[in-house]
Every structure is written in structure tokens, then in C-alpha cells.
């Protein structure tokens, strides 16, 4: 245990048990979390994952069960005498055909999941995500059919985490908390703000090397590749703060470029977007005001 000791650990396990059996959807990694998050978005591979997991568990019990029975019953020390047979066409046909049937069932489920994931049509807004060494850039492209004017910003690891993660900083990662939740290496200076209940299309590119944009609560990751525009979509159901990380090795600070998505109600988002647009306008005006006198003497 890092610190905090056994008491915290016990409460964490209790929270886990509640999460496992109480059916709470995890938005962010919990201490001692065992399973995949159900996610907070319309599309989620959680059900697919659970079906596959249980199929594997059942087959595992049958196969390993047979092995352990064999190891118990057919021991030389129990006087077992080896039989001579080494072939059975009937059995071999059964254990070739049965897996095929199970696989067809799984393939059917997975194909459905892929088809719905690939359909980025009818999205109500577009956000461009660009991966850089080692931060993300978000540009709002359009919202409800209207193009967004100049709203875009960089999003990088917030400062406390950044100081703490330096080699031999002697700072305690346990102390970095937001709302009682540890956000060490999972918090940014400026989160991506999105509306809930809206189908959002992400276009994802790489600015220098390949990165991968991954928020587990959204159910997918997508590589950010220089020269290629990838797309993916989400529709977040509940307001909340959803955290993720870069998932493709991108150099020395690959572990230090988190992603934070803040999902807010539509009205709040529209207000936020309007403020951002205004700020962008003011900034642009200030920039032109600055650059004009600078250029004047030359002209």
C-alpha cells in the first residue's frame, strides 16, 4: 500500500464490492478496480466484454476441470494403467464444431458493435483533436450546424502533478485530489468541455508523432496519426468529469499527457461556448491592434 494504510484499503475494497454488485458506472479508475468501466456514453463495449469474459470463464472451467480430473484419476501412484487409444473422430468433430458455433455468436455481437461505432453520421457537433508531444489541442469546429468561431486551446498536465512526477521530487502523489478523488497524472490545466445528450464527432490527427486519444468512460480509443484524419463519435449521457490518457507510446512524456472531458448540460455548454467565442474575438482584436503599429513603420 502506498500510504494511508489498511483502513483506506478496506474502504476501497468495500467501494469496489459496491461497484461490482451495485451496478454503479465508474467514470474514472477506482483503487483496486477489477473490471472495465461500463462507461458514460451511448456506445459502450462493456456488454461485449462481459459476454466474452463469461464465455472464456465457462470454457476454462470445463477444460481445466477435465484436466484436474485427469490429473487426479490417472496418476501412476494411484495404480492407473495407461490405455492405448489415441484417436476419436467423433470427439474431434465435436470440439471443432462447437467452438465455431460459439465464435459465430461472438462475431455477430462484435459486428453489431463495430457497425454502430463506425457510423459518425447525424452528429450534432464536431471537435478536432490534435496530439502533440506532449499535450492535446482541441478545436471546436461546428455545433448544431453552425461553424464555431476560433474556439480552440491546448490542454496539458496540470502543474502540481507535473512537479510531483519529476524524478525524486519527494512530493506525495496521494495529496493531489479534486473533490476527494485522486487526480495525480489525470488532470489538465484546461479540460475539453462538451454537452451531454449530443452526438459529438471527433476528428483526430497527430501533430508530430502518433498518439492515441483514450477516455475509458467513452468506450474507445483512436490513434492520432500525422497525415491521417481519423474520426469517432460519442454521446455522453450524464454530466461529469471523465479522465483518460494518451494510449500510444509517443516519447519520454507519453505517460504525462492526460485527457479530461467535462460533460455539462446543453444550456451550460452553449453559454460556455458563447463566452469562449467572445473571448476569442476580443483576443483577435487585441492581436490586430498590436500587430498593426508594429507593422506600420515597415510599411
Amino acid at each position: 500500500m502506498t500510504s494511508g494504510g489498511i483502513g483506506r484499503s478496506v474502504s476501497a475494497w468495500a467501494a469496489l464490492a459496491f461497484a461490482l454488485f451495485g451496478g454503479t458506472a465508474w467514470a474514472n479508475p477506482e483503487p483496486n478496480q477489477l473490471n472495465m468501466t461500463k462507461g458514460a456514453a451511448e456506445w459502450s463495449p462493456y456488454a461485449m466484454h462481459m459476454v466474452a469474459l463469461w464465455v472464456c470463464v465457462v470454457i476454462g472451467i470445463v477444460v481445466f476441470g477435465a484436466m484436474f480430473i485427469a490429473m487426479f484419476r490417472f496418476r501412476k501412484s494411484r495404480g492407473a494403467v495407461a490405455e492405448k487409444w489415441s484417436h476419436s473422430t467423433k470427439l474431434e468433430v465435436v470440439w471443432t464444431v462447437l467452438p465455431v458455433i460459439i465464435l459465430i455468436f461472438l462475431a455477430h455481437l462484435a459486428t453489431g458493435g463495430l457497425t454502430s461505432f463506425a457510423d459518425t453520421t447525424k452528429s450534432e457537433m464536431t471537435i478536432k483533436v490534435t496530439g502533440f508531444q506532449w499535450k492535446w489541442r482541441y478545436d471546436y469546429v461546428d455545433y448544431k450546424g453552425k461553424s464555431v468561431d476560433q474556439v480552440g486551446f491546448m490542454s496539458k498536465l496540470e502543474e502540481t502533478s507535473d512537479r510531483t512526477r519529476q524524478l525524486k521530487s519527494n512530493l506525495d502523489p496521494d495529496k493531489i485530489k479534486v473533490d476527494g478523488y485522486n487526480t495525480y497524472l489525470l488532470d489538465v490545466d484546461k479540460p475539453l468541455v462538451v454537452p451531454v445528450g449530443t452526438k459529438i464527432r471527433f476528428v483526430i490527427v497527430g501533430g508530430d508523432v502518433i498518439h492515441s486519444w483514450w477516455v475509458p468512460a467513452l468506450g474507445w480509443k483512436m490513434d492520432a496519426i500525422p497525415g491521417i484524419v481519423n474520426s469517432a463519435w460519442t454521446n455522453i449521457k450524464e454530466p461529469g468529469v471523465y479522465r483518460g490518457q494518451c494510449a500510444e507510446l509517443c516519447g519520454q512524456d507519453h505517460g504525462f499527457m492526460p485527457i479530461v472531458v467535462k460533460a455539462v448540460p446543453k444550456a451550460e455548454f452553449e453559454q460556455w461556448l458563447a463566452t469562449q467565442e467572445d473571448e476569442a474575438k476580443i483576443q483577435k482584436a487585441a492581436q490586430t491592434a498590436q500587430t498593426v503599429p508594429a507593422q506600420a513603420p515597415q510599411g
Binding site: 500500500m1 502506498t2 484499503s9 474514472n28 479508475p29 477506482e30 483503487p31 483496486n32 478496480q33 477489477l34 473490471n35 472495465m36 468501466t37 512526477r165 502523489p173 496521494d174 485522486n182 487526480t183 495525480y184 497524472l185 489525470l186 483514450w214 475509458p216 483518460g244 490518457q245 494518451c246 494510449a247 507510446l249 507519453h254 505517460g255 504525462f256
Partner: peptide
């Protein structure tokens, strides 16, 4: 468990939530 909980590969450091299983 770490992977399912959301820990990426090839990272030298991680959130405190991943601490116990890493240890």
C-alpha cells in the same frame, strides 16, 4: 485488472488508483 481499469502500457508512472496492483 490494471488494463481493464484504464492503465495504458509503456508509462513510467501512474495514478494512485493503480497503486496496489502495480505493487
Amino acid at each position: 485488472f490494471l488494463g481493464l481499469a484504464g492503465m495504458p502500457r509503456r508509462i513510467p508512472d501512474y495514478n494512485v488508483a493503480f497503486a496496489n496492483f502495480n505493487m
